[in-house]
Amino acid sequence: MQSNETPLLGHTLKGGPAVVMQSAATRKERTGVVGHKDLTDIAAGDQGMTAVETNLPGKRINTESVAGQVVGKCTEDVPMEKTPTADIRVDDKITIGEALEVSALTAGEKPVDQSDAAAIQAAEVSTTHSNVIIPGGVAAMAQSAANVNARMGSNEDKTKLADILTDANTKLPGDKPVTRQDAEGVMVAELRNNPNLATHPGGVGASVVAAARINQRNK
């Protein structure tokens, strides 16, 4: 029994079946009832002494048997293994608000004109699905800036894209990932309102188109 118990538990269990049986065997050997090398039919047969370990969540149960009869059971608490948590997937698509913020960085010093205002309005419409300009919204601010800038001579005093589009994500009534349709609408609006039928490098249209291309690749 001790040869089964020790490998399982790592030590002989104090007061356990192996100790009790060893003590009884020693007493019988001293009184001459059994010899040191005597074997019983049980010990020599198939139904000998066994020690079985059963693992349960937070528990380990060690059961010792003789001839199929349980003679001892020991229960130990064991640390629960933490179940690995799945990584939380964060949507990596660029939103319209984020694309507008990019243009504030790449073309922030550009004075706002009608082509910019039209492009920004198209971007806002994509998030609201309404052609109504929201009072105090980013499109209304851009249109007001374009009107004022048109009457000013010096570019230094004009309202710049960065003044309108910095933190654009918080100025929009809503936001959504940029799609190809959104980009086309913004680009067309900027082109139609530019006398040269061109878009500004790094401007509103270019930034939204770039975001749409990235989102398309990340599908």
Results as ranks from 00 to 15, higher is better:
186 V>L: 02
191 L>G: 02
162 A>Y: 06
179 T>P: 06
160 K>S: 12
198 A>K: 14
204 V>S: 03
179 T>L: 06
205 G>I: 04
153 G>Y: 09
152 M>I: 08
201 P>G: 07
163 D>T: 11
191 L>D: 00
170 T>I: 05
162 A>Q: 14
167 D>R: 15
173 P>W: 04
178 V>H: 09
187 M>Y: 15
165 L>I: 01
175 D>A: 12
197 L>T: 10
155 N>E: 12
172 L>P: 05
152 M>T: 11
182 D>T: 09
162 A>F: 11
171 K>T: 00
173 P>F: 09
181 Q>Y: 10
162 A>D: 10
202 G>D: 07
184 E>T: 15
186 V>M: 08
171 K>W: 05
188 V>G: 00
160 K>N: 02
155 N>Q: 14
192 R>Y: 03
172 L>F: 14
151 R>T: 15
181 Q>L: 09
178 V>E: 06
168 A>C: 07
162 A>S: 11
206 A>Q: 02
191 L>T: 00
190 E>L: 00
160 K>G: 03
202 G>N: 07
184 E>Y: 11
187 M>Q: 12
156 E>Q: 08
184 E>C: 00
153 G>C: 00
165 L>A: 01
197 L>F: 15
193 N>G: 02
178 V>S: 02
173 P>A: 10
151 R>A: 14
166 T>W: 13
206 A>T: 14
163 D>I: 05
193 N>V: 00
195 P>R: 05
189 A>P: 02
183 A>M: 11
182 D>M: 13
150 A>T: 04
163 D>E: 05
202 G>S: 01
155 N>P: 01
207 S>M: 03
156 E>W: 10
169 N>W: 12
159 T>F: 09
161 L>M: 07
154 S>A: 13
165 L>W: 08
160 K>P: 02
187 M>I: 06
173 P>H: 03
163 D>R: 13
185 G>I: 04
150 A>F: 12
155 N>H: 08
191 L>Q: 04
165 L>V: 04
164 I>D: 08
198 A>M: 15
208 V>R: 11
168 A>N: 05
161 L>Q: 04
200 H>A: 09
203 G>F: 12
186 V>Y: 06
155 N>C: 00
196 N>W: 06
156 E>L: 13
167 D>S: 14
161 L>N: 08
174 G>R: 13
190 E>C: 10
188 V>D: 07
158 K>E: 05
164 I>A: 08
